[in-house]
Every structure is written in structure tokens, then in C-alpha cells.
Amino acid sequence: MNATLQPRVADPVKLAAVAQRLRLHVLRMAERVGQGYVGQGLGISDLLTVLYFHFLRHDPQRPDWVERDRFILSIGHYAIGLYAALAEAGIIPVDELDSYGADGSRLEMSAPETLTGVEMTGGSLGHGFGQAVGMALGQRLAGRDARTVVLMSDGELQEGSTWEAAMAAAHHRLDRLIAFVDHNRQQADGPPERVMGIESIPDKFRAFGWHAQRIDGNDRMAIVAALDAALTAPAGMPRVIVLDTVMGCGVPLFANREKNHFIRVGADEWAIARRQASEVA
């Protein structure tokens, strides 16, 4: 195994503090626009914390550093979470978060590649995985040991392009490709089991030739451990980590609410949400 693929030691206290700040950024952005994808942003804060503050090799001073690990957000509507992470990591200014969704802002509701730190324009779902396969191929061809990490959603598993990409990644033995699936059990018309069943997700990936794990996606140290296991998994196969997450995680008011694709938030609820996000660690 290449030396740069060695697992690193994670600091749970530091990660907890970062995750909390990401959640507060998400709430601040969502409050300004009245909703946004607050449930998705909160639910994915733990993953983004581990990626940007533990796993990814990147340089905030040089976001276009060619040796960087690439993080591809296929689900453009999760932009609110990514912006929080980019700001906290020092890649975009924290103050700019206040412009989320505003007319003329760089921080569009769906993450555009015109923004520093955004590797590709997601949002038309089912694109990120294929591009990630291409990036992983490209990095290998260039002789770089950079890793490619892609985040997609449970809803995206219904797109045919997802399985075209899964097949190609295994065929080309892209073992520096790590795919995450945010299994938040939501999509536009309801939970996937009612819309279009997608289980068993790990079994499907295994059948396609992938190394597959499934974990609690809101448990940061479980994410750290799964990444360690992914790094030490047998060579020659791409890795997938299915994250069982809770939309709105970190804010019990939202997490326990009857949900759909959007969480409806009353004007008076933001203060409660902020207080709850400040309490949990």
C-alpha cells in the first residue's frame, strides 16, 4: 500500500466542535432564505466535517493544487452543507455565507463549479458519480495518488447513470475512488421504499465488484473508522460507504419532525434550532 494511504489519527473533540460550527452555519444560511435544504445540510455535516478536517488532503490557500484529493458533490442541492464546510475550512470567506441564495451571489442554492472549491456542478442528479470515475481514471493516468471522493444520495441510486458508473469503476479497478451514499430515506415524493425501492444498497454494490460498508452516517468516529477500513481494503476495487443519516440531525426539533424533501420551518423556530444545535456536541 502506498504510504500516503495510511490512516491518520482523528481527534473526536476537534471534530465535534467543527461539526457543531457547520450546523450553525447551515442554520444561519437557511434562516436567511426561509428554508433551503436545511435538513440535508444538517444531516451531512458529520461527513463533511470528517472529510474536510480529517481525511481530504487539500490546501485552503491553493484550492486548485493539482495533487489535492477531490471531493465531488453530485447532489448540488446539498450545497448549503458544502458551503459551511468550505467556509469553516477557509476556502471561502465565512461572511460570504450570508449571501446564500441571494440575487447575484456566488453561493447559489445548488453548488456551481464557478465557486472556489466546487469541483463540478451537481444538481442534475446522476452526474457526479460518472465524473468522479473520470477523475479517478485521470488521476491514475497522470500518476498521482490523489483520492477521489464522491457524495451521492439514495435518490440518485435510481438513475441508470449511477450503475453505469459503478460498473465502470469496478471494471477499471479504481481503488482510490471512495463513494458515499447519503441514505437519509428521503427523496422528492417520499421515502425511497415507497417511491422506488433501492435496497439492499451494499449488496448491489458488492455485486458490481465494490468493497461496501454501511454505517451510522451521523457518527463521526464511525465515518473515520470506515475510511480507515476503506484505505486498507483489498487493492483493485472501488470503495463505497453507505451512510444511514437522519435529516435535520443535530437539531432535535427538525430531526424528530415528519419530513419530506423539504423540512418546513416556522419563522419562530430558528432561534430554538440554533439553541439546540449549540447544545448538542
Partner: peptide, 27 residues
């Protein structure tokens, strides 16, 4: 519909004629 029933008003048809409605997922 492809996971956009509620967003394209066809959910009304689905409620009225559940046997004649097919959700195909986001595909």
C-alpha cells in the same frame, strides 16, 4: 412520474386513480 409527482401536480391524478398511476423513481 419520475419522483416529481408532488411537484408537477400529477399527484392529484395519482390520488384519484391509484391503480392507473406508476411512480418510476428518479429515472
Amino acid at each position: 412520474t419520475a419522483d416529481l409527482g408532488k411537484y408537477t401536480d400529477i399527484h392529484l391524478f395519482a390520488e384519484r386513480f391509484p391503480q392507473r398511476f406508476f411512480q418510476v423513481g428518479m429515472a
